[in-house]
Design a protein around this nucleic acid. Sequence first.
RNA 1: GUGAUUGUAGCUCAGUUGGUUAGAGCACCAGAUUGUGGUUCUGGGGGUCGUGGGUUCGAGCCCCAUCAGUCACCCCA
Length: 459
Amino acid sequence: MTKVKAGIPQGTRDFSAEVVKKRDYIVNTIKTVFELYGFQPLETPAMENLETLMGKYGEEGDRLIFKILNNGLDNPAKHQQVKEDFEKVLEGKSVKSITERALRYDLTIPFARYVSMNHGQLTFPFKRYQVQPVWRADRPQKGRYREFFQCDVDIVGSYSLLNEVELSNIYATVFKKLGLAVEIKINSRKLLQALAEICGGAEKMMDITIAIDKLDKIGIEKVKEELEQKNLTKDQIAIIEKYLSISGTSNEKLEDIKSLFGNNDNGKKGIEEIEFVLNYQDGNQNELPLSIDLTLARGLNYYTGIILEVKSTEVQMGSIGGGGRYDDLTGLFGVPNIPGVGISFGLDRIYDVIEELNKFPEEVGTGTQVLFFNLGDVECKKAFGLMQQLRDNNIRCEIYHEQAKFDKQFKYAEKKKIGFVVIIGSEELKSGNCSIKNLLTGEQQTISSSSILKYNFHQ
RNA sequence: GUGAUUGUAGCUCAGUUGGUUAGAGCACCAGAUUGUGGUUCUGGGGGUCGUGGGUUCGAGCCCCAUCAGUCACCCCA
């Protein structure tokens, strides 16, 4: 075998023990809340049939799907066909004979596929959560990885806006538990539709949303320039400018938008949706960091109603969560009339935010609690017996792997952040005692070995 | 896909207009200290300067190519 330089693919990462524990802390927090709200887990394969994924995420999304090369392309019998098909790949098409599988790009489409396959057996409304990695062939940068985890909750089989209310509450609850200050932005695709209908027709919706989505980045003048380039008239741009200038509290925004869109059906519906979700909170509305953002568009083109996005208010970072209503996702798989709504948490970005703010709880990431020193064969055997007793009592212990100088064993404990060492040397052996040292305080006491179970090893 | 930027010891980084044998801190190993770590002192090991080519009497430094990381755009979690 030739030696290769050790390395991992661009945008992927190894996770050390400490990192895994911190990630687990986030995931457990999220899963606990999901279950509190009545959701049950689902897991799907890392790969899907390519045709399941293609065309669901827009043109840009298709490009970012990791495709898997078929096996057996070297079969001589297939050479001619493979060569012909590969020409099509060079033209940018995907061909089943070259790639028929791909890594999943998100958790929503695989979920829709699952519901489509199993709708006969499921109890509706079907509520599931899913925490698994997804892959995107994007260029990595801050907060962007090629392999990252999403934590999704979705409800399918219900048009009720109560679901949107529940999901906003899930967002608020999780981030509160994690100690993060966030802004949950809410909008409705129907308002964007209404805006398009009023300004040049429904087919302009993409152009308009892409432009207004950039408002806080490039400013109103540049947005207007971009709209001009898309052949919108001055009057139409004036309406959009009016739309973008709407500000104030959520209630004030609603009033303004009503006077602007009051006569448009989609506009009316969009306003109703947002109003419902905001007002349902009633008494605790003030506690929810929920606010209307009329420029919120969301890239995925399957959304039809309420859309949500979460941003940290403390750290500069892309969105750490997003979601919305999609009224006919399973229709793509031949099963019509199953509406759905769901949200997603970006685990890796949430991690980065907590890490940057230093907000991981102290106790997350603690490993071994007690190290038993190894000071000789007989001593070790005695220590080993005591250690097993502690383990039976759920104290996490280890014993130094070989006889060594005190110095070495202390340093090992220190590096691994082990809080206590138990010393059993010739003296302790003789007297039937053991010495326990708290490495944090430096205190040490000698007790009889038989009473070790009574010792408090918690810091 | 487009653009910018960085690659020197295990880690973080110095390294002058190109000039002898490439340095520091931390980490590591050994000793001061044969039953007490975190502080201190002494000594030691460790580098194809990302890789390949070029210019030059001479390249860590200049030029070209290439690979890798980071950041931004697009888009997104």
